[in-house]
Design a protein around this nucleic acid. Sequence first.
DNA 1: ATGAAAGCGCTAACAC
DNA 2: GTGTTAGCGCTTTCAT
Lengths: 337, 337
Amino acid sequence: MKEVTIYDIARETGVSAATVSRSLKNNAAISDKVKKLVQEKAEEMGYRTNTFASRLRTKKTNTIGVIVPRLDSHFISTVLAGIEKIANDNDYNLIISQSFESAKKEATNASTLFNSRVDGLIVSLASDTSSMKHFKKFIDKKIPLLFFDRGCQEFDCINVVIDNEKMGYEATKHLLEKGCRRIYHVSGNPNRDVYAKRLKGYTRALNEFGIPFDPEWVFETKMTIDDGINTAKNFLSRESLPDGVFIANDACAAGCISELKENGIKIPEDIAIVGFNNDPISRVVEPKLTTIHYPGYEMGEMVSKIMIEQLKNEEKESFTNCVYLEAKLIERQSTNK
Amino acid sequence: MKEVTIYDIARETGVSAATVSRSLKNNAAISDKVKKLVQEKAEEMGYRTNTFASRLRTKKTNTIGVIVPRLDSHFISTVLAGIEKIANDNDYNLIISQSFESAKKEATNASTLFNSRVDGLIVSLASDTSSMKHFKKFIDKKIPLLFFDRGCQEFDCINVVIDNEKMGYEATKHLLEKGCRRIYHVSGNPNRDVYAKRLKGYTRALNEFGIPFDPEWVFETKMTIDDGINTAKNFLSRESLPDGVFIANDACAAGCISELKENGIKIPEDIAIVGFNNDPISRVVEPKLTTIHYPGYEMGEMVSKIMIEQLKNEEKESFTNCVYLEAKLIERQSTNK
DNA sequence: ATGAAAGCGCTAACAC
DNA sequence: GTGTTAGCGCTTTCAT
C-alpha cells in the first residue's frame, strides 16, 4: 500500500521533483509539454497530494473550524449548508463540532480546533456561554474569528446577524395591530443577544402602544417543542390568558399552539401567535404560523464568504463589526383575526 | 507569530526533542520528573502540536470523511449529531460534505475526501446515484467505507440501516388493520433501497390482505413539503380518493395533510395517513402523525462506533454486511379511526 | 531513561 | 524553463 510521491513521478518522467510539484500546481513557468506529461503520469500512477507535507511546508491548513450549539436544528443545518457550499467551492474544508449548548463543551471544542490549527473559526454561541476567554487565543494569534446568529461584541470581530431588536419589534407590533393588548413573550436565555434583543424589540413595541412592560409576561425557556407545550400549560394555569404571544422560535411556537388547541383555545381568535425563523414546521402547523423569515442559507453563505475573504487578505482589514441580513415578517393564519 | 516547537521546549528544559516528544505523549519510558517539567514548560510556552508534522510522520489523519445528501434535514442532522459525538469522544475529526442529492457532486466530494486522506468514509447516498465507482478507490486502498440509511450492497462494507421492508410492511398493515383498503404510497427515488424496500413492504402487506399491487397507487417524488402538497393535489384531481396513504417521510406527509385538509378532506376519517421518520414535524401537524420512529441519533452513534472500531483494528475483520437498528411504529391521531 | 539522527513528502529560494 | 537544496516539525529506531 505504498503511496505514490512526486519523487516517483519524477523518476518515471525523468524530470525533477520540483518540476513535478510545479506542474501539478499548474505553475506558469513550466512548459506545457512537461506539464502535460507529468499530469498524465500522475493520473496514471494514482498519485494524490500529501496535504500534510504540503501544509507542514506552507503552514496553511485550508480548514475552517465551526462550532454550533447543536447540529439537529433546522436553522443551524440550513446555515451550515450555506457555509459548506461556499467553503467547498473555495477548496476549504470544514471541521464542524457541536457545543450541545454548553459553555464548557464549547471551550473544549475551541481548544481542539485551535490545536488543529484551523485557519479560521466560525461560531454560534452556546446558550449559557458568558465568558469569551476560550476565544482569546484566536484573537491573540490573529486567527479570523466570526460569529453568526448568536454573536459576541467582546472582540473586534465580525458578527453576521439579523436585526433582532427590529424583528422583535415588528413581530410584537404585528400582534398589537391585530388588536392584541395582553401579549406574552416566550424566549431563550437572555445572555444571548438574539433573545435579549428580541425582548427589547418586544418591549419597545408595547411601550409605543402605551403598554407597560410586565416581567410576568415573559417566559424564559430552552425553546424546544416540549418547552412550548409546558409554557402553554403554564399559561393555562394562570388566572387570565394572553390574547397574543410572540415566541422566539417556531418549534416552540408549534408545541405551544398544539397544547393550547388541545385545551380548547382557538388560534388566532383567542390567542394570536407569532413565531420566529420560518422553519418548515411553521407551514404545517394548524393554523399556519405567522413568523419571521430568517435567511439561514444566505447567512451561511455570507459567513463563509467573509471568512474566506479575511483568510485571503494577508493584512487584516478593518471590517464593520456587524453584518446585517434582511429578515422579514411572514403573515399567515395564526395572527389572522 | 512564531509557533512554539518541541525544539523550543527542548532548549528551555535542557532535554532533547525526542524526550520532549515522548513526554508530551506520556511515554512510560520517561521519568515522571522530566515528564512533568516538559509538560509544564509546554503549557507555559503555549505549545500546540503540529498535527501536520505528526500526520506526515505517522500517516494517520485521525479524520473521518462524511458525505450526506443534504445538511438541512432533520433526520440527517440528527444522525450527524450522533456521529460527531462519538468521533469527538475518540479524538477523530469529521470532514462533512453534502452531495445535494447529486451523484456527480457526490463523486467530486468522494475524490476530495480521498485526496485529503481521510482514514475512513461514511456515506449516505444521493438519490440519483447509480454507479458506485467513485467509491472504488476507497475499497482498493482498504479505507473503511461505511454506509448509513441509504446504503450500498455493491462492496463488502457495512451498512447501518433499519429494516425498511419490515417498517414499510408494518406501516401499511397498520392502515389495513384500521380498515383502509385503497392505500396509496408516496415515496422517493426507487434507486435508493430505503424507498425500494418500503415499497416492497407496502406491497407485501397489501398482498397479505388480498389486494393486488396497482402501480397507479404509487407516487415517486422528492419528498419535500411541497412535494406533499403537489401529491395531494394529484390525489384530488383523480376520480376517486384513497382511504389511506403511506408516505415515506414526515415532512412530505405534513405537506400532504395540510393540502388535503384545505380541500375539505378529513384526516383520518376520509383518509388515514402514516408517515416515516418521527420528525418533530409529526408531533405538531394536525392531526398528529402516525409515523415510524427512526433512531437517527443512535444510528449516528452506531455508525461512528463501527467506523472507529474498524480504524483501530489493523487487520480488517469480517463484519456482517448489515447492522440493523430497531425502528418502531408510533400510533397517533392521523390513523385513529 | 535519554539522545542522535534520519526521514515522512512537499515547497520555494536560489542557481543556472 | 528546470534542477538543487534546505528545511517545515514531528516520530522512531538505534545506540548508549
